[in-house]
Design a protein around this nucleic acid. Structure first.
Length: 489
RNA sequence: GGUACCGUGGCCGAGUGGCUAGGCGGAGGUCUGCAAAACCUUAUACAGCGGUUCGAAUCCGCUCGGUACCUCCA
């Protein structure tokens, strides 16, 4: 299988030609959400970024297994003295079962992801469903001598590990600096070094999510689930591991360490990290409490939103920036994205009705190569979109009789646009589903003919009232040379 | 304090040595009863200072400003 796809590998800090370990198979693991709250705009970024990669790899002919986990245990809360589980904390506050929280937010996450038109992962494992696998990994790391027990908890011995391997190879950190710079946190007296991390944590009596283990009644450490589940479903070494840049350290760094300590070699060939979405230049995140949930975007129910934005507008907005750049959110930017998306789709709608000429005045086929080139250059979707806009302009020119295309080129446009807009960028034509109702079609035909009569009688007041009233209902009327056309907004 | 990244026109955002990015917004025009859409034309740019080069937004250095990670975080 040949391809020219280059992806930026965080491990080497360079763009590298993508060569799977065992073509045509590709194994891809992406860090999913911790389901203790609604998904916000930041969660949409990796989901969409790696959805694009998933779609493109499949398009190139690879057989991809895409694993995205659901974190439903572990992950300590920083302000809880006892190291209380995040899910548990939420559960206690709302007085419900932890798994009830997990179910509730998992469902909502899935709904949001469907709204954003991301393809479902091949496997979506939960941490709580893989306690045994995680314990097996702890045992192995213990056997290999890279972990120690302390008060019923098991910690990873970073210093010892670093003597044979390199702790910091992904994030560029040096262990000596970690010694000096790691902040003092509660509950660290059990550890030999402040940067050692838990593989297994003993549950205190109030902790309600716990499992029996050889060491204590407890729960698995922060970074273990991805290592254990990645290995189980993709093997000890797999092609791609993705996630947000904020997971680079310590999460992904520790995953590498765990894999080496357990299996003796690196787990992943290509590490990919998407950048953050910012608000006024600052990261949108849970801890800063400046996040806007996806539901709030879709309904417009957040004080800093001027109105609602459709899921496809959010998707398009995210795709208009490169995944490794920060993306600054604002109403203005979203409105611009919405108009741009609309412009693209309007052009797409014109394609079937374009009139063919005997010759073409523009070279539309060259745009396909340009788009592939952009995709191959580390998934440069903003570049792809820029090319598509240029094609949209050509379509409009042909529609206006200012440029010419032969039938073959028009047919080419249909498949080309279809491939890039819908198959690869994963955009959905929300309007395509509207207007299928025969009753509505007939109704609109009737209304528009009444309006046409009014116009012919120069009764513009009536004509404009019809148009204005329909606009309020979300129906847009455009008078063209071929008569009035309508569409749902 | 350590590590990494960034600073592009009113806004968002590509571009890494010479060729118009693109979208939104602004101005003027064509079309139209008006509007919308579309098309045409147009203005506004590469944080600052030095250096390398025939030539730099793009490479190097310094300065200033910002962000991320170092603690759960997409």
């Amino acid at each position: 299988m040949e391809n020219k796809l280059h992806i930026y590998n965080t491990l080497s800090r360079k763009k590298e030609l993508f060569q799977p370990i065992k073509p045509p198979y590709v194994g891809m693991y992406v860090c999913g959400p911790t389901v203790y709250g609604d998904a916000h705009l930041g969660h949409a970024r990796p989901a969409i970024t790696f959805d694009i990669l998933f779609r493109y790899l499949k398009h190139l002919g690879y057989k991809v297994r895409y694993v995205r986990n659901i974190t439903d245990v572990g992950h300590l809360v920083n302000d809880a003295d006892s190291g209380e589980d995040k899910i548990q904390k939420k559960a206690r506050l709302e007085d419900v079962e932890p798994m009830e929280i997990v179910k509730y937010y998992s469902d909502r996450y899935h709904t949001n992801m469907d709204q954003l038109n991301t393809l479902h992962p091949s496997i979506e494992p939960t941490a709580s469903g893989h306690i045994i696998e995680q314990m097996e990994m702890v045992k192995k790391i213990l056997e290999n001598g890279y972990a120690y027990e302390s008060e019923g908890s098991i910690y990873f011995d970073v210093e010892k590990y670093n003597k044979k391997y390199h702790y910091g190879k992904l994030s560029g950190r040096k262990i000596e600096e970690l010694i000096e710079n790691t902040r003092e946190l509660a509950g660290q007296e059990e550890k030999r070094n402040s940067f050692d991390f838990a593989l297994w944590k003993k549950a205190d009596p109030t902790h309600i999510m716990h499992w029996p283990s050889p060491w204590s009644e407890g729960y698995p450490g922060w970074h273990l689930e991805c290592s254990a589940m990645g290995k189980k479903y993709l093997g000890e070494t797999f092609d791609i591991h993705g996630g947000g840049m904020d997971l680079l350290f310590p999460h992904h760094e520790s995953e590498i360490a765990q894999a080496n300590a357990a299996n003796g070699h690196d787990p992943v060939k290509y590490w990919m990290h998407n950048n953050m979405i910012t608000v006024n230049g600052q990261k949108m995140g849970k801890s800063l409490n400046n996040f806007i949930t996806l539901d709030e975007f879709f309904t417009g129910s957040h004080q800093s939103l001027q109105r609602a934005y459709a899921p496809m507008v959010i998707r398009f907005f995210i795709l208009q920036a490169h995944y490794r750049s920060t993306l600054d959110f604002s109403n203005e930017a979203l409105v611009a994205a919405e108009k741009g998306l609309n412009r693209l789709l309007e052009a797409w709608h014109l394609v079937p009705d374009l009139k063919a000429s005997t010759e073409s005045s523009v070279d539309v086929k060259s745009y396909e190569a340009k788009c592939y080139e952009a995709m191959n250059d580390d998934l440069n979707t903003p570049m792809v979109i820029a090319h598509l806009f240029e094609v949209a302009k050509i379509i409009n020119q042909v529609n206006d009789g200012k440029a010419k295309l032969i039938q073959e080129d028009i047919d080419f446009l249909k498949s080309f646009f279809n491939t890039f807009i819908f198959e690869l960028l994963g955009l959905r034509d929300e309007k395509a589903s509207g207007g299928n109702d025969q009753v509505i079609d007939y109704l609109m035909e009737t209304i528009l003919s009444i309006r046409q009569n009014a116009k012919q009688n120069k009764d513009y007041a009536t004509a404009d009232k019809i148009r204005d009233d329909l606009t309020k209902l979300g129906i847009v009327i455009k008078d063209t040379k071929e008569g009035a056309k309508w569409s749902l907004k």
